[in-house]
Design a protein around this nucleic acid. Structure first.
Lengths: 199, 199
DNA sequence: AGGGCGGCGTAGACAGTGTCTACAGGGGGT
DNA sequence: ACCCCCTGTAGACACTGTCTACGCCGCCCT
């Protein structure tokens, strides 16, 4: 269990997968292609990942980690709870826009429904749970009535997810016209779920 | 250009694809597997579909047609504009729940970004456009102010899409607990975008 | 009726994939 | 010094989507 100066091959494989999915999209992350980019033979990944899904899960986990980091930074830099939630929302759709391939991979449940990674790690499906909890807390502060925080947060969360996805595909632009602005839509979403800002 | 009593092979291939995606999920719709189910050799589909993507697009189009039919029936059976929009919404998440594999396929843009079907057909990406227009009209009636109908409809649409997707994967249940009810969440979504029912 | 012909489906080849298995090389511990 | 285990290599296997060459059958034309 020694790490050479290049980092263990396990990490290098995940690195290569991340690079690949960022550069070429979620359809290009083949097992052999990752191995090629990491400079090893196609059988090498099998020492560390039992299956292709497991490797992809590790790649997707990196995506969730980056997303969580962005959330943390954005929330820390915002003033009130309402602004924090807004920052949260902006980070979500910005991430989906910038890291399109990674975002796709992160929600391709058919590709990563295995446990995905070594025994100690939490299951990938639960990676966003603490984020949801944090957001529910903030939403509760915004609403005043914490009883409804759960459903409102879920409604807002699903809205952000759908907006990020459909916007990234250009479907919203197709419906609203090319001059549509995502910021305006995002504000409308926030107002709908949290009430207008003046409230 | 004669059709035997079994229907042309083109249709039989799409039928087989639909059956397959409904029965086995969106990951099982291989070109050869479809051909196998249709009882022809693996090269036969190539006469009618230039590529695998084209065949999948035709399969997905069937999904959009069924969805449009469900919309039509539900909207026709509802009373006021608000009830019509609610019926619309219920149909969307119900479809995603019942026809999970088809729903996945319909939004796997990487699998079906080709034109997909013969020359006369409209592009698949625009299949939902008339539905959006119809919904925007209804939303305008609900709101009174038709100026905001576009953004509100887009916000609601994306919310339905995200809810359908995340609910179908069980992500919402993971966040809210297993006793969460999708109907309650759906009502909250409608209230958020259209205002409470009493208004 | 007989002869071509054109469309339809078959069958094989090809490159590529994920998974599995057998094997070589090297370092550390006894 | 020896042995063993760990790590990575290399080949096989079944499978995929695409492409090409080839038969077959029914139709139209003379």
């Amino acid at each position: 269990m020694s790490m050479d100066e290049q980092g263990s091959l396990r990490e290098r494989l995940v690195d290569a997968g991340v690079e690949l999915v960022l550069a070429e999209g979620s359809g290009a992350v083949g097992l052999r292609e990752i191995a090629r980019r990491a400079g090893v033979s196609h059988g090498a990944p099998r020492r560390y990942f039992a299956t292709h899904q497991a490797l992809l899960s590790a790649v997707a986990r990196r995506g969730f980690e980056e997303l969580a980091g962005r959330f943390e930074a954005a929330v820390a830099g915002a003033a009130g709870p309402r602004e924090k939630v807004a920052a949260f929302a902006r980070v979500y759709v910005a991430f989906a826009g910038e890291r399109r391939g990674m975002f796709e991979l992160m929600f391709r449940h058919d590709l990563l429904n295995g446990d995905g990674v070594a025994e100690g790690q939490p299951r990938l499906r639960e990676a966003t749970r603490p984020l949801f909890g944090e957001m529910a807390r903030l939403v509760g502060e915004c609403l005043g009535e914490p009883a409804r925080a759960g459903v409102v947060t879920a409604a807002l969360w699903t809205n952000l997810h759908g907006l990020a996805q459909l916007w990234g595909w250009g479907s919203v632009q197709l419906m609203l016209g090319e001059q549509a602005r995502v910021d305006a839509l995002l504000d409308a979403v926030l107002d709908a779920h949290l009430g207008p800002v003046a409230a």
